[in-house]
Structure formats: structure tokens, C-alpha cells
Simulated assay, not measured.
Amino acid sequence: MADILEDKIKNYRTAPFDARFPNTNQTRNCFQNYLDFHRCSKALSAKGQETSPCDWYQRVYKSLCPISWVEKWDGQVQDGSFPGKI
């Protein structure tokens, strides 16, 4: 039973309901998961640990966010002009 549940979570392709963002507009949810992914990756990389636990946030933001937003944000992160605090 646990294997079946674990397999379902691993293969889950869309973002689940998040009680922090109950409204239909998921813009904030998209942005928050993008930030959480980068914060998680940065924190675990600084400790020399595996960043695979951060993959959850990446899957969620990739399912919620338009590709053009992610590309723009990635460019801003590289340039150092991203408005969020990572």
C-alpha cells in the first residue's frame, strides 16, 4: 500500500491544492513555489547536501507558472535583478 502511494506521489504531474492559496488566481502560488525551490536549492547546496528534496517545488511551479514567466525570472536571477529574496 505504501509503495502504491509513493508511486502516485512520484508520478504526480499537477500541483495539489494548497490551503495558503485558496483562490482561483494561482499567480502568488506560482511565484512562492519558484522562490521556495531556489531557496531550498541554495540552502542545501551551501551545506553540501543533495538537492533532490527541492524537486517538489520545481514540479509545482512548472505546472502552475507560464513558461515565459519562468524564463524571465531565470534571466533575472542570473543577472542579479530578480525582485524576490532568494
Rank of each mutant, 00 (worst) to 15 (best):
M1G: 12
M1N: 11
M1Q: 12
M1Y: 13
M1L: 13
A2N: 13
A2F: 14
A2Y: 10
D3T: 12
D3C: 15
D3Y: 11
I4R: 14
L5Y: 13
L5H: 07
D7A: 15
K8D: 11
K8H: 14
K8I: 15
K8Q: 13
K10G: 10
N11L: 07
N11P: 12
Y12D: 13
Y12H: 14
R13C: 14
R13Q: 15
T14C: 13
T14G: 10
T14S: 15
A15C: 15
P16C: 10
F17L: 14
D18Y: 12
D18T: 12
A19H: 12
R20Q: 07
F21T: 00
F21Q: 04
F21K: 01
P22Q: 12
P22L: 13
N23C: 14
N23T: 14
N23R: 12
T24N: 11
T24K: 10
N25S: 14
N25R: 10
N25D: 15
Q26T: 08
Q26P: 02
R28H: 09
R28V: 11
N29P: 02
N29I: 01
C30T: 11
F31A: 10
F31W: 08
F31M: 08
Q32F: 00
Y34S: 03
Y34T: 04
Y34L: 06
Y34D: 13
L35S: 09
L35M: 10
L35V: 12
L35G: 06
L35R: 11
D36K: 06
D36G: 03
D36P: 01
D36I: 00
F37K: 02
H38K: 02
R39Y: 05
C40P: 00
C40T: 03
S41C: 07
S41K: 10
S41H: 06
S41Q: 09
S41Y: 02
K42F: 04
K42T: 08
A43C: 01
L44P: 05
A46Q: 08
A46G: 06
K47Q: 12
G48R: 04
E50H: 07
T51D: 07
T51E: 12
T51V: 09
S52C: 05
S52N: 09
S52R: 06
P53W: 04
P53A: 03
P53V: 03
D55P: 00
D55E: 14
D55V: 04
W56H: 11
W56D: 10
W56L: 15
W56Q: 10
Y57G: 03
Y57Q: 09
Q58H: 07
Q58S: 08
R59T: 14
V60Y: 04
V60C: 04
Y61N: 08
Y61S: 05
Y61C: 02
Y61E: 10
S63P: 13
S63Y: 06
L64P: 03
L64T: 13
C65P: 11
P66Q: 09
P66C: 05
I67Q: 09
I67R: 07
S68Y: 15
S68W: 15
W69A: 06
V70Y: 03
E71N: 13
E71T: 07
E71M: 08
E71Q: 13
K72L: 14
W73K: 00
G75D: 11
G75N: 10
G75A: 10
Q76F: 01
Q76I: 00
V77N: 00
D79T: 05
G80I: 09
G80V: 08
S81F: 04
S81A: 04
F82T: 03
P83S: 02
P83F: 01
G84P: 02
G84S: 01
G84V: 01
K85D: 10
K85Y: 08
K85H: 07
I86H: 05
